[in-house]
Amino acid sequence: MHFAIRFLTEYHYDAPVTDNLNALRVRPATTSTQRCDEFHTRIEPEARVSRHLDYFGTEVIEFGIPTSHEQLTIDVRARVVTSAPPDPPEGSWDGLLTPAYFDAAGEFALPWQDQPSIAGLESLHDALEAECPLETLETLCELIPDRFEYRPGATYVGSTVSDLLDMGAGVCQDFVHLSLVLLRRRGIAARYVSGYLWAAPHDEGADSMELDTHAWLEALLPCSDGRGEPVWVSADPTNRGLAGEAHVKIGHGRFYSDVPPVKGLYMGGATSQLEAAVTMSRLDPQTSARA
């Protein structure tokens, strides 16, 4: 699929602020199933930006506005081509114990930091009993939306897994965090993915739509014959299934705070009002969507 993405963020401050420093993680990654052709950022007030790749390979765009201002606009535009991922491997549980799997898993297999025991995880854990890791992953994608309600506003950016369990509702970020905890408990390495999702209704061939940034996950599955390299498979527990070419990945990390789209700080006692919107448009003929 071929998309044009515009990510517009506007902060309004109720008093002048200075030294506004921000780090953006918004550029679509280039992977085996995705290519970012064009990418522009515009900052208002104007600022010098610097870029680097972070530890997880995500491009970070940084800028700072030292002088006094009352409004900040971050306007990001990108063009991306995606293709469907290959079929996921159906390797066995034994595949999780090989050195190759260990090396590839790294920190993504470590127990969730700072959350020693979460009451109420047991029944979810038991429900994920399956023949092979892939089946567990697929089960998980059904289990989470079955048990929890998707309700914007139920949680906030700093909510924990326990909060989701208490509330019984949350957003994609919370769903992914819980999924990561469950997968790692099963010994499956899993990581948080931040990105954009083309979520056009199936019956309507819209060319353009307004949405938000999205979160899903990638799980490391052993390869089918048990010998080859394990493979990262994308899954979207919010949307009940494996992720496909409608998912445009920005980057991944251990959890949300490794890949926040916008992170910033400013000097001054002002409070800020945020307006953020993602607009995605399909650029290729939508034959496949209509068929």
């Binding site: 920190e107 297999a109 470590l110 490794d258």
Partner: peptide, 17 residues
């Protein structure tokens, strides 16, 4: 073991590279 390195609480991903 890489696993040991990444499990160090003071392993600072922010200064990678």
């Amino acid at each position: 073991p890489w696993r040991l390195v990444v499990s160090c609480s003071h392993f600072a991903r922010a200064v990678h590279g």
